[in-house]
Design a protein around this nucleic acid. Sequence first.
RNA 1: GGCGCUAUCGUCUAGGGGUUAGGACGUGAGAUUCUCAAUCUCAAAACCCGGGUUCGAUUCCCGGUAGCGCUACCA
Length: 510
Amino acid sequence: MTVRVRFAPSPTGELHVGNARTALFNWLFARQQGGEFVLRVEDTDVERSETRFEEQLIKDLQWLGLDWNEGPDVGGPYGPYRQSERAEAYQQYAQKLIAAGSAYYCFCSSQEIELERKAALTAGRQPRYSGKCSKLDPETAKARKEAGEPASVRLRIPNHPFRFEDLVHGLVEFTQEVIGDPILVRSSGLPAYNFAVVIDDALMRITHVIRGDDHISNTPRQLAVYGALAQLPRQTASEPDWNPPQFAHLSTILGPDHTRLSKRHGATSLGHFRAAGILPEALANYLALLGWAPSQGNREIFTLPELIQSFSLKEVSRNPAVFDMEKLRWLNRHYLKQSNPERILNLAIPILQQAGYIGESPDESALTWWREVLDLLLPSVGELSQLPAQAAVLFEYDAGASLQIPANNEVISDAAARQVVEAFAEKTLENSELSADRLREVLEQVKLATQQKGKNLFHPIRIALTGTASGPQLDRLIPLVEAGSRLELPKPIKSCRSRLMEFHKALRGI
RNA sequence: GGCGCUAUCGUCUAGGGGUUAGGACGUGAGAUUCUCAAUCUCAAAACCCGGGUUCGAUUCCCGGUAGCGCUACCA
């Protein structure tokens, strides 16, 4: 039997990393087993579902590197793949279940139920549905329903324990079944989750359900639905056998405060990570490691194909995992460094545009310059959104402000340091441009003239030229400053010449 | 409240009846460099608590505790 798994998100918001990990694990399992991966949209919550979220979802999943054999966008033999379009199936099976006596109409209003619930809670009893309507005569109930009275459909929960063999948790047992008869179909006619999910998984021939462990407690309810469905007389050979699939429940992803990761924790949607310049392969690698580890546990870097090869549900861990942005950045830096520079440039452009460092349509000379800048700056960056801060050393120069900084001031107030700056300025100003070669020459001359070297030589020059005591190698940075100053950039770069003059002026001011 | 899931360095985890409890991120130190970052080397850092089983439990069992989840006409 070929493995069939599915990812079944609700299009009620942006795709969250927790759900993305669930999708990833399903996909990895399917691809490894040579099975099929199905995308199904659970949009029965009409209040919150939006089509734009579905479109976004598909883009996000593709960005992560996943693909699917069947889904709302590509179709497939078990469609439709939106629950909102599958109403017929739910209706049909609900009716069969009622006819068989496994399910019944319930005329209790939500308010009534809520009242019962509260009363039970305050009395310290189990807040579960009383089963009032289950005692109704089926014929009368049917008549009332047909007369137009709003009714939901509930399942009779059999009075026996439920157990299932979870692929990651082992045997899970619910001995005392404390759940009330669950709603199968809401009075609006829309199916409830626990019903729709079973119908869909069975009809779509899903063999393995890999999902979040927040569904563990729902599983007995679903098992009850499978049980009731299995008792129905089989009418056509094409009907499923209603045997429950295998279950694998994945642990929750937590925030740094050990509560369930959510928007409260900041950027948690795929869109956020993409915008921040996290590479999809880095995210996928990181997500795979969150809750899964290879049996030796000593390898961290995995490409998608490598993950497909190594992944195993048996090695999936049961403990909830805290999302660690630092480790993601570390992985991202790794992939950033080994990526094609042209790809990184294209990803960086919008970010640098937003910072005002790149114009609407940069010309080729600007792009060439940026290629070198990126090459210099990239190692110090864990995500592309940190690039503007690194690029500031080229674009933002304010001699006066930098001299206000005590550490800078201290360096520069040294007589020898001033000498270095003066000698450097003199040599630089007599020639208009500091190319890499010219810089080397000037440095050599200053070194001879002042007898300063190493830190004492570079530090004062660095401060005079960049306004800060730290940054990329001067011999690479300076030529880029010069080259940048000749470019047409939305924010002009001051040349070394003008920097030195500004610095000189500022120096006199203190 | 009830039920369920979970419990190894700060974090992600490997391991497993006798181990120097391994790796990675982060942290600290050193090397390198003009500085920062990157890189390399080294170091510090963990088996939730209590009972049992056992010659021996971090590992197996039971209980407690804590965290999380479910307890919806949300998914």
